[in-house]
């Protein structure tokens, strides 16, 4: 185990987890405790079940953005959907779901093939969308005027994670078993082996920086939309 591996693979993960969870927790708690003013925007939902359907439409389908800027809607929606799929796919790096695969009648080989196609495809798509979102910060006057250092930092960080992830998949040999053993060891405080893929370490480092960035920067819109949209749509 090199010093760098120790730093990124052993020392940093608990810090990342703490910054992410405590940081988001503090922000959410502060929002939650703040007094609410009535700022209903119509058309509004009547009753709480309608309200949450409306909020779900915003969070899952980006309904408002569809009306405001259909081009951006397409890119942003695909980008965020890819993020969600990638999040789900990454669960396999930590654990596996043999019962699920058995239930749908998939063998180990089938799962790997599916993962390669969907994971690989999404990896390419999100790279394209990420580059588009970065590009429009230079070409769209509305986005260019609004953009600040923070916006480029967040996007470049995301792109860094995406590029190293894609490179790991397409340009190197990624050993799933080895990586899973490492994460299992990390979670059970019983580390035995470390992945020997240098792209993995770069990807993991950038990924952790991204996670730590969530509670301090604009990515707070992840928990934030669950507060902002209900405030507007509550009758």
């Amino acid at each position: 185990m090199s010093a760098l591996q120790f730093l990124v693979g052993v020392l940093l993960p608990p810090v990342t987890a703490a910054v992410l969870l405590v940081g988001v927790g503090i922000r959410v708690r502060t929002w939650y405790r703040a007094p609410i003013g009535k700022i209903t925007l119509y058309p509004a939902a009547k009753g709480s079940s309608h309200l949450w359907t409306g909020v779900a439409k915003e969070v899952i389908l980006f309904r408002s953005l569809w009306g405001g800027d259909p081009g951006l809607w397409a890119a942003a929606w695909v980008f965020h959907l890819s993020l969600a799929l990638i999040f789900v796919g990454h669960l396999r790096v930590v654990t596996d779901f043999p019962r699920l695969w058995a239930a749908v009648g998939m063998g180990a080989q089938g799962v790997d093939t599916m993962s390669a196609w969907i994971g690989g495809g999404v990896g390419v798509v999100i790279l394209g969308m990420g580059l588009y979102l970065l590009g429009r910060r230079f070409t769209s006057p509305a986005a260019r005027d609004a953009s600040k250092v923070e916006d480029y930092v967040a996007l470049l960080l995301l792109l860094g994670v995406i590029v190293t992830g894609d490179a790991m998949r397409f340009l190197s040999h990624f050993d799933l078993e080895q990586t899973r053993a490492y994460f299992y060891g990390l979670l059970t405080l019983n580390l035995r082996s470390m992945p020997d893929n240098s792209l993995f370490w770069l990807h993991f480092l950038l990924g952790q920086i991204l996670l730590m960035y969530i509670p301090v920067g604009k990515l707070l819109h992840l928990p934030g939309v669950f507060f902002s949209h209900p405030l507007l749509r509550w009758e």
Partner: peptide, 22 residues
């Protein structure tokens, strides 16, 4: 940072996508 809630959340979550300008 004492509220109201909406204003506080608005300080934190803008993605500066430029849709408002459009």
């Amino acid at each position: 940072n004492k509220g109201p809630r909406a204003l506080m959340v608005y300080m934190d979550i803008c993605a500066r996508c430029g849709t408002c300008a459009k």
